[in-house]
């Protein structure tokens, strides 16, 4: 039988993939921490957070310019102005930028300006978008859909890769279950399951995965322990005043401690 996951599966590619993205490595033992605010709000906000997360040990800066929001009345991002602010933050910190694409309208700007193009959970099965982004050949961060199986996630990655992109990073960000104590149920078992099937790096989003800032640290540590290749964490310098997802954002001080502890966990496992 022909392999189902032709490009993302281990069949034709038994070794872990290691991507070098704008000078930062991820995969095959290289751990990447992506951090930043849910959305880019103002210049001082993104510049201060970028500097803080860099000093705390982040290797990539995240920040939403185009935001998919459940309510049409919620803050939906600064759009291209937000992208410009991310570029200034990158110039100031040298952190490569990760930001979400919502539609093919701004494909050209994303191709020119963004280091890793994020495809959000809600767009995981938007196949036209997957193909259009895949044709750019730029690194992609693909988030698992809220109600998608691991099989569907890998097939979505397959769509991007078949369109011409080699560097796809998969992200577990919590799935919808009957549990209401958390925003989503973070499916950490997805990490070893995916890693057995695929050579692609897998990272974990404990911020969306749980929905509460105080759960970010324990789940980040668990993700590091279960073999994830990285984390994506929402950091805000003023969580209570954040225009989006403040309750799941950690302050730079809390983030710094998370990174420190994650490194201890990784060292402990490496030396076990």
């Amino acid at each position: 039988m022909a392999e189902k996951y032709k490009l993302s599966g281990r069949g034709n590619h038994p070794e872990d993939s290691i991507f070098d993205i704008s000078g930062r490595k991820i995969g095959g033992g290289n751990f990447a921490v992506i951090a930043g605010p849910c959305s880019v709000e103002t210049e001082p906000q993104i510049l201060s957070i970028a500097r803080d997360v860099k000093n705390a040990g982040a290797s990539f800066l995240r920040g939403g310019a185009f935001k998919p929001r459940t309510s049409p009345y919620a803050f939906s991002g600064l759009g291209l102005d937000g992208l410009d602010l991310l570029k200034i933050a990158r110039a100031k910190t040298d952190l490569p930028i990760v930001t979400e694409i919502m539609s093919i309208d701004y494909l050209e700007q994303f191709a020119n300006d963004v280091d890793i193009i994020q495809i959000g959970a809600r767009n995981m099965q938007n196949y036209d978008l997957l193909h259009a982004v895949g044709r750019l050949g730029k690194p992609v961060l693909l988030k698992r859909g809220l109600s998608s199986t691991i099989d569907e996630l890998l097939l979505a990655a397959e769509h991007i890769m078949a369109s011409g992109t080699e560097e796809v990073i998969l992200c577990e960000r919590g799935i919808r279950t009957f549990e209401t104590a958390t925003r989503n149920t973070l499916d950490l078992s997805a990490v070893p399951v995916i890693k057995a099937l695929s050579h692609l790096p897998v990272i974990v989003d404990p911020s969306h995965g749980t929905g509460y800032w105080n759960l970010v640290e324990p789940m980040a540590l668990a993700a590091a322990a279960c073999g994830a290749d990285g984390l994506i964490i929402e950091v805000h310098n003023h969580p209570e005043a954040a225009l989006c997802d403040g309750e799941q954002s950690v302050t730079p001080g809390v983030f710094k401690n998370i990174v420190r502890k994650v490194n201890i966990v990784r060292d402990a496992i490496a030396n076990a």
Binding site: N237, H238, P239, E240, T251, G253, V254
Partner: peptide, 9 residues
Amino acid sequence: KEKNNLAIL
């Protein structure tokens, strides 16, 4: 404040 994820200002 740091322990409780609160901003300084």
